[in-house]
Amino acid sequence: MNRRALYDKCLRREPLSRAEAYALYEACPLQEIASLADRVRRATVPDPQVVTWQIDRNVNITNVCVSGCKFCNFHCKPRDRERAFVTTPAAYRAKIDRTLELGGDQLLLQGGLHPKLGIEFYEELFRSLKRSYPALRLHALGAPEVAHIARVSGLTTMETLRRLVAAGLDSLPGAGAEILDPDVRRAISPGKPGVESWIEVMHEAHLLNLPTSATMMYGHVETPRQRIDHLLRIRDLQARCPEGHYGFIAFIPWIFRSTGTELEREGITTRFSPLEYLRVIAVSRLVLHNIRNIQASWLTVGRQTAQVALHSGANDMGSIMIEENVVSSAGAHNRFDAEGIRAAIREAGFEPQLRDQLYRPRPWPVKTAAQA
């Protein structure tokens, strides 16, 4: 392998072959590819001295889910009446009011694959939230949930997306990707819509010019090459996005957390290495040449590793996450408030910039409801 030629190709932001991407991950020194990824980041983002961040809240629509994901402690079966819930209108109001008081502008709305909640439920939910809070952005659901709602409702996924957008959906998270490999999916998410379903829903969202993000949960049963294959699927899907459409605005890799999960009971535990995470970040920046924003997952890797990631290809620190339940229930207990995340960015040598979901700057300090 000619490393110099490979690095020059990365600097030109040209698509790598599968063999080149494997070599980048498996054979290149971390210090070299982290430095290379930082150079590419600086050439890609509008202002290389700025690191963006967000204020939003992750609200779970329901915890009822039939997908059987072995990495999730949060879900419960429909028959578990003691644990099962669907968030009430009063609870939404309380959570949204507090989010606005803290300067947030968005709800990340996710739930499970509830067997009895069809398109009408989600349409009414989105419409009611928009009626009460017209400026609130709904970053909601995920490709598996869209596919499930379509199946329950007897619709195509494109019809489902159109109706959700008409009801108030502003953007679609990358949730449910995990590792886009059929064998991995069967092993960890046996009841979830498959790889091709995730890709199809995301492509349809891109055709509708619905902003999306992409994710990767790694560090469980997958191989390093399956991680790279995942990145290549994301890159190639982004290449199919119509010109001028949003496509994938950001990519967020995060580490599997095993505490109390079914995978842990099967002997699969968290294998977190900060150096491996930095390699994932750097290679993500270099392979995903057509996605501008790479996010450091401070929630799962902690403050210091996330800060180093900002020098290894990442340009965003994500959200302070006023509320988050799913990953936290599996052992991720890192926390930031607005002052803390801004301080962490400054400590890393950058200027913090509050943003919205489309990576547009928001002024800081924001005028919160408590200040009005």
Rank of each mutant, 00 (worst) to 15 (best):
L108D: 04
D80V: 10
N60W: 07
A90P: 00
F126K: 03
L129K: 07
N60S: 10
Y133C: 02
H114F: 02
C72A: 09
P144W: 07
K116I: 02
A94N: 04
G118W: 02
H75Y: 15
C72R: 05
P144F: 09
L125T: 14
K130E: 07
L117S: 03
G111A: 07
H75Q: 15
Y92C: 01
N60Q: 06
G104P: 04
L109M: 15
V66K: 12
A91T: 12
D105I: 13
T62K: 04
K70A: 13
L125G: 06
K95C: 02
P134L: 09
L109V: 10
R83H: 14
R79M: 11
R93A: 11
L113S: 07
L129P: 03
H139S: 03
P78V: 12
V86D: 01
L141V: 04
V86Q: 03
E120P: 01
P89Y: 04
D97P: 00
L129V: 12
I96L: 00
Y92N: 01
F121Q: 05
I96E: 00
C65E: 06
Q106A: 13
S132N: 04
D105F: 11
R79L: 11
L136F: 05
S132C: 01
L138Y: 05
G103R: 08
D80Q: 12
R83V: 12
C65S: 12
R137A: 10
T99F: 03
L100W: 03
G111M: 09
A140R: 02
S67T: 13
G112L: 08
G68L: 14
L109G: 10
A91G: 00
L136I: 09
Q106D: 12
Y133D: 02
R57Y: 05
G68W: 13
K130T: 12
F85W: 04
G103K: 11
A94T: 12
R93V: 07
L109A: 15
A143C: 10
Y133G: 00
R83Y: 13
A91C: 00
E120V: 14
E101S: 13
Q110F: 12
P89K: 06
R83G: 07
Y122Q: 05
D97S: 01
D97H: 02
A94K: 10
I96C: 00
S128V: 09
R98Y: 07
L129C: 07
L125E: 06
Q106V: 06
F85E: 01
L109R: 08
D105M: 08
L108H: 15
K116G: 09
D80E: 15
D80H: 14
K95Y: 11
T88R: 07
Y133P: 00
N73L: 10
R127Y: 06
N58F: 09
L107W: 05
E123C: 14
L113G: 01
C72H: 05
C76H: 08
